[in-house]
Design a protein around this nucleic acid. Sequence first.
RNA 1: GGGCCGGUAGCUCAGACUGGUCAGAGCAUCGGACUUUUAAUCCGAGUGUCCUGGGUUCGAAUCCCAGCCGGCCCA
Length: 526
Amino acid sequence: MPGPHTDDSRAGGSPSRPSSETNLLRVRRNKLQNLRDRGIDPYPHACDRTHTSAEAVSLFESEEAAHGEGRRTAPVSVAGRLVRRSGMGKATFLDLQDGHGKIQALLRKNNLPDSYDALSDVDLGDWLGASGPLFRTRAGEVTVEASEWTVLAKSLRSLPEKWHGLTDVEARYRQRYLDLIANDDARRVAVMRSRLVSALRRFMDARGFMEVETPVLVPVAAGGTARPFETHHNALNRGLYLRIATELYLKRLIVGGMEKVYEIGRIFRNEGVDITHNPEFTMMESYEAFADYNDVMRMVEEMVSTLASQILGSQSVQFEDSAIDFTPPWPRIELRDAILQRSGIDFLECPDVESLKAAMQAAGFLVGRQMSWGGLLDKLVSDVVEPDLVQPTFLIDYPVEMSPLAKKKRAPRSEAHAIPAFAGTQPPPALVERFEGFIAGMEICNSFTELNDPIDQRARLERQEALHAQFQDEYMDRLDEDFIRAIEYGMPPTGGLGIGIDRLMMLFSGHRSIREVVLFPHMRSR
RNA sequence: GGGCCGGUAGCUCAGACUGGUCAGAGCAUCGGACUUUUAAUCCGAGUGUCCUGGGUUCGAAUCCCAGCCGGCCCA
């Protein structure tokens, strides 16, 4: 760790002083040896813990409730990292932090005649065990009165400061373990994420979905619009990509007759890193045979509100200045209307790049030269619509141009389902049955009535390949021949969904930055 | 890619505008006192690649230039 501090034989130079860090490390190594000299193993193999901190406290409180105050329980054994020490000569209070909270231990020389002195070789950060009865101190804290204590693991480095914790953002991300030790919020978010994923699984399983795993290493990075990471398989001597979506493999399973499938999977996109984008992130995709996007909208409403109830204990969450209410149903707004209301631009009247660009420029947008029609519309949505959608909202019916995997919008029907209400009127040919869900100005999910016409699908993807050739700055969906072949065997009508787990976590935890909800976010090497 | 802000002891931060007793504080650490503390208290001690590399200057943590890392905003 210390660089090559070669002694430059400078005449009369004072010997180079070790850094403060080196001194701290040396002191702790000395204590480590002292423990060994006392016959204490500083790294024992196991620990006979009987109670977590939380269990110990509730045990004491229930006994106190049953038998009155001032009693001691039968002995318990607790374990944790030493995070506070308050020593008074012949008595010492220790706070031990475990995965469930903290428990205080009182070590008194009277009770520990042989081992008390070894406390001088114990530091903040060490893992310790303590055994003895529980009692309540004068200050009211449930405490283990130790009749025995053990070192479980000696720590050689000093912890962040107890009062301010670790606030340096860079250090918090690069050394997440310190963040977890020092900051309650880091622990809260980590636990919340685990619970969220678990609750999501339960939700999907309860609806009869089957969890599956599909390839991460793929020959074609298809199913989405993103630049992929490239890698190489040595034994096969061929290039491979890391997946940018799970969509096309999950649809293959629908072709195979698996009616309801989902995958909670890591997705990789070789694009910029910013407050809402990490190169790897987690998405749940689900596909349900015989469903359409209306069914999926109902599922998403129910899913998010159920997750909120289970994770937050509420149908609402405070996100920055907004109280967000997840209670279904969420409004469905046609994308066309959403844009029209906010910008005065009707994209149905701007069928080509030139007219849309002209309309946007007239409305004051700065548009780049090399932008496709879909790229322009995407900018319009993210600039004027998305930030405005704070309460849960579905935008529906997207242009086919930017949705090559979605089925065209069906013709409207009459109330009686008998005679077409708009006889002679074709549905807008440019629209597909697609929705995106927005909450707190963030895109949370994306869904289609899936395109299952293999001939149309091939034509759409070939169109994307052509657009990619024309607008080289933009990544388009790639044509995956093996996928086309699969749906040529027949894919039933299907409703599909992709929902961002990281975005949901940001929403539920109240964080604007994806780096706060990913345990080990991508960082530049230093 | 552009703009703004930041990087000083293990941690949290002063010091920078106005270059020179500016290498500082608190916590942690070290020595001592203390058998119910809660950011324990009391007495005493020191800690350092001031992000890196250049430059200006008699003199740079401080001013200038370039770079690295991070945060926020914009593209």
